[in-house]
């Protein structure tokens, strides 16, 4: 009996998320008395599969089929379902990325089994009567839910960034086995038809500095000084939902639960109150500097550093000081 870990990859390079799933899966499989197996799907899967023994997978299923050359949630879900049936796996785990959650949801719907998304911890010894117990994320991380899972086949995802992906202390054999599912041609209906690359360079999620603006900025035009400061610091501008709702900035600039999660060296959050839905997107920043007229604002009380004052004066003053020191 096994725990099957779904591993995602980009043309043969395993994603960090997959390594997180394997790292989370090792102690889970051990505690549940299951062997840990992995499945890698699609073009480049061979290359991605090769290193998985080092991450603790004893068997690595390499799935291939003409319908699996690019991503397709239905084809991927059906492939995992057939593998579960074929190998008798009793649990399936993936990382809770958009793709991971979508594929496991497909597996759950097809097997008519429950699926617990975005767990932070899972205890397979659970409540002592064969049920697993877990703590999972709600509200994008602002709230936690303790839950039990009663199922023939346990389907879970681990929330992204809960563990760091590291190699196993004791590597497993990582025996590669090829698997060719039987897929209905109709599943081509949800396979990626085309791919468009938009941005290269720094994005909100990878920028080392983010200069954020909220309702306090006041207008689209008033973001110009924030752009200037971000430019000086090699960063980008982010914003709150109040800003996107007003049409001052595009949604791609929004930080938060329904926007982008950022992790810069420093997040300069100006004119942002720090509602929980904004905070969950910002809290992975290594340092936070809040600029706000309100000393009691949540963003100020939660930040490591703060300046109390009008952002329209403070931001240009910082830019000027940066330029002055650079000479």
């Amino acid at each position: 009996m096994s725990l099957l870990v779904i591993c995602d990859h980009d043309r043969g390079t395993l994603s960090d998320a997959s390594l997180e799933a394997l790292t989370f899966g090792r102690p889970l499989a051990a505690a549940a008395g299951l062997e840990m197996a992995a499945v890698v799907i699609g073009e480049g899967a061979d290359a991605a599969a090769a290193g998985l023994g080092a991450h603790g997978a004893s068997t690595v299923h390499v799935a291939s089929h003409p319908l699996l050359t690019d991503f397709g949630p239905e084809a991927w879900g059906e492939t995992v379902v057939q593998l579960v049936r074929g190998t008798g796996a009793t649990a399936v785990l993936a990382c809770g990325t958009d793709r991971g959650n979508e594929v496991v949801a497909q597996v759950a719907a097809r097997l008519d089994q429950p699926f617990v998304a975005n767990c932070r911890s899972v205890d397979p010894t659970g409540d002592g009567s064969g049920n697993w117990t877990m703590t999972r994320v709600q509200w994008g991380g602002s709230l936690l839910e303790d839950a039990t899972l009663t199922a023939e086949i346990r389907l879970v995802t681990v929330a992204h960034h809960v563990v760091e992906g590291v190699a196993a202390e004791a590597p497993a054999s990582g025996t590669m086995v090829s698997f060719v599912p039987e897929l209905d041609d109709a599943l081509a209906r949800t396979v990626v038809a085309d791919r468009v690359v938009l941005t290269r360079g720094i994005t909100l999620s990878t920028a080392p500095v983010v200069v954020g603006g909220g309702r306090g900025v006041g207008s689209a035009e008033a973001f110009a000084p924030l752009e200037e400061l971000a430019g000086e610091l090699g960063g980008v501008v982010g914003c709150s939902r109040a800003v996107t709702n007003n049409g001052w900035r595009p949604h791609s600039d929004q930080v938060g639960q329904t926007g982008t999660r950022i992790a810069p060296e420093i997040y300069i959050a100006s004119g942002i109150s720090g509602a929980i839905q904004h905070w969950v997107g910002a809290m992975a920043a290594k340092n936070i500097l809040a600029i706000n007229t309100d000393r009691e604002a949540n963003m100020v009380t939660r930040a490591g550093h703060a300046v109390i004052g009008d952002l329209h004066q403070v931001i240009p003053a910082i830019t000027e000081e940066v330029r002055r020191r650079r000479g």
Partner: peptide
Amino acid sequence: TVILGTGPEAAPAV
């Protein structure tokens, strides 16, 4: 929270 200052005078500390 470390308050670096009030208003634009806080710029050097920032």
